[in-house]
Design a protein around this nucleic acid. Structure first.
Lengths: 177, 177
DNA sequence: CGAAAATAGTTGCATATGAAACTAAGTCAA
DNA sequence: TTGACTTAGTTTCATATGCAACTATTTTCG
């Protein structure tokens, strides 16, 4: 699956499956039943519930909130790289989030004496105040969405998600197997 | 953007948890443990696994594939509105996906005699061939990601996702309850 | 040491996105 | 009818995104 880009893949030629006849062969693909589709619908609702809060209250975008969440929980200053690692966000996204937050006075950058390429980031007092306001609100949203679910249901759910991720991470060689 | 509301929630006042002292109150928010964060990480992997395929093979983007998936399963022509409804995509997104697919010769638009505002959309022969090529490949990705999971585990998973969506859809009035 | 490779972070570019405004067509009701 | 309202779909605009190229530093190791 590493074909760089064969792009103009001749449509007629890629016949893996029997072409049957000229008639419509009706692959039974139903988007609404498709697992990844449902995941997306689910994800969209979850993520909207959150961004609604930090968007509305502070005009922050997801990357900014996540950056804040990590810095808020940290004790000392962190490098941007750590934020990248712990947020699973792209480094460009983090870079821009940091920039914007600094402009808004939510965080401070100081030179890193140990490494001239990087900076140590931490929340300003104002940023921390925002964090202390937002974190409980977002935890409340989490509580709301998980309302009525038992510990075990939740951990099962996460376990399944994790197994799916593992399945996907497995190189395709071993899957027909 | 600005502060449209009362939101200035006094940071010090929102104490659900014991306030201890005036010292840093250390809200215990840990991004990595935060349910919505995990959902996002999961979703990202799932969605990437799919887009990798239609992106690589046909340079399509998600909205295009989803449009194709719906049209591919439909018998007659569909209005864009139906695609919007059944894909839970924005109508602007659908509009552009349709446009691009038409340009690429994957679908045909014919005037809708029953309603002059809309068009009836359906896959062209070429579009259908692409669909017939892609649908099985994407079903295979689905199979791969669900590998090793039992029917019941999957349906439980989806049920939990649904319950979470329901929790979120519920107006906040009734949630403290 | 010092050149090549690796790493931190930023920027440019091309494209994607959503909100809101817009056009055109259909519906409703007096 | 006609005028107000609704709906289908497109366009505009401002912003978000990701890749790849870039600068500046640090690391590696012959």
């Amino acid at each position: 699956m590493s074909k760089p880009n064969t792009q103009d893949n001749d449509v007629a030629a890629s016949g893996d499956q029997p072409q049957e006849n000229g008639d419509r062969q009706r692959t039974d693909f139903v988007l609404e039943k498709f697992f990844p589709y449902r995941v997306r619908v689910f994800y969209t609702d979850v993520t909207n519930a959150l961004s609604e809060v930090y968007q509305r209250d502070y005009g922050m975008m997801p990357a900014e909130w996540r950056t804040m969440a990590i810095l808020g929980a940290a004790s000392g200053g962190l490098q941007a790289t750590e934020i990248v690692a712990r947020s699973s966000m792209d480094k460009v996204v983090v870079s821009r989030a940091v920039k914007r937050m600094e402009e808004r006075g939510f965080l401070m950058r100081e030179a890193n004496s140990a490494d001239g390429r990087s900076f140590l980031l931490q929340l300003s007092d104002e940023g921390r105040a925002v964090y202390e306001d937002l974190a409980p609100k977002l935890l409340a949203v989490e509580r709301k969405m998980l309302q009525g679910l038992g510990e075990e249901e939740i951990s099962d759910f996460l376990a399944v998600a994790q197994r799916i991720r593992n399945n996907l991470a497995t190189s395709s060689e071993e899957d027909g197997h």
